[in-house]
Design a protein around this nucleic acid. Structure first.
Length: 218
DNA sequence: ATCCCGAGGG
DNA sequence: CCCTCTGGAT
């Protein structure tokens, strides 16, 4: 359900969560924009902790865009196997590396439109890379956490990530677009998890239209 | 709407 | 065993 004043709701959420989660950035480890891109592609349907376990050896073995462009598919698949979806991810990483080399002079493009032409890169991945690698903001990254919390907190009634992103962009000041995803992601992992949200200890439980559904004993 | 596809938790 | 974890392409 949507709250009565979503804009006010969004601002209050930002106000409270920004205090608890001041970092507001990715938990993925990286040192270059292309490493950020690779880590983000790998993170699909996987945990950041799992990806951070893989990437140190991966980035040592493939130092730079050209190394990934020249990688053997079968070998890269084995290197990233534990992240899940390894065939598609390996294919996309090599494809993205080749595209960056051939079409963008070896540098990850710094805008949404160009990012979206890379294989395996959708709006979520593009938003994450633009924000974390370049400090640029063209939209709001909507992942599984943002999707779940935006719904529970009454900020959007949509289920399509693209529509949720549009809803959020209309509610939130542009200066907060980059940080907002991380407030919801951090809170989604720490308190408002998918299965058993811990509403009694949530700082938003008094303004959350879904809280009563989960608070059993009061 | 469905496929890809592995690890970890309850 | 089932669900979930920072999705994207067909």
């Amino acid at each position: 359900m949507l709250v009565e004043n979503p804009k006010k709701q969004a601002l209050e959420i930002i106000k409270r969560l920004s205090v608890i989660y001041p970092e507001a950035k990715t938990a993925l480890n990286f040192t270059t924009p292309f490493e950020m891109l690779v880590a983000t592609i790998l993170s699909a349907q996987s945990t950041d902790k799992m990806i951070n376990k893989i990437t140190p050896a991966l980035f040592k073995k493939y130092p730079g865009v050209q190394a990934f462009a020249d990688a053997s598919l079968a070998e890269l698949e084995q290197d990233i196997k534990s992240s899940g979806f390894f065939h598609n991810k390996a294919l996309n990483i090599i494809g993205a590396a080749r595209a960056v080399v051939s079409r963008f002079g070896g540098d990850v493009p710094r805008n949404m439109a160009d990012m979206l032409t890379l294989p395996g890169v959708g709006r979520k991945t593009a938003n994450v890379v633009l924000h974390n690698a370049f400090g640029l903001v063209e939209g709001i990254a909507v992942d599984t956490h943002v999707k779940r919390l935006a719904g529970r907190l009454g900020l959007s009634t949509n289920t399509d990530p693209v529509k949720i992103e549009q809803d959020l962009m209309a509610l939130i000041p542009r200066s907060e677009w980059g940080n907002f995803s991380y407030y919801l992601i951090d809170h989604g992992r720490a308190v408002c998890d998918a299965k058993k949200p811990r509403c009694p200890e949530c700082v938003l439980n008094d303004i959350c239209p879904s809280a009563f559904l989960f608070i059993k004993v009061k």
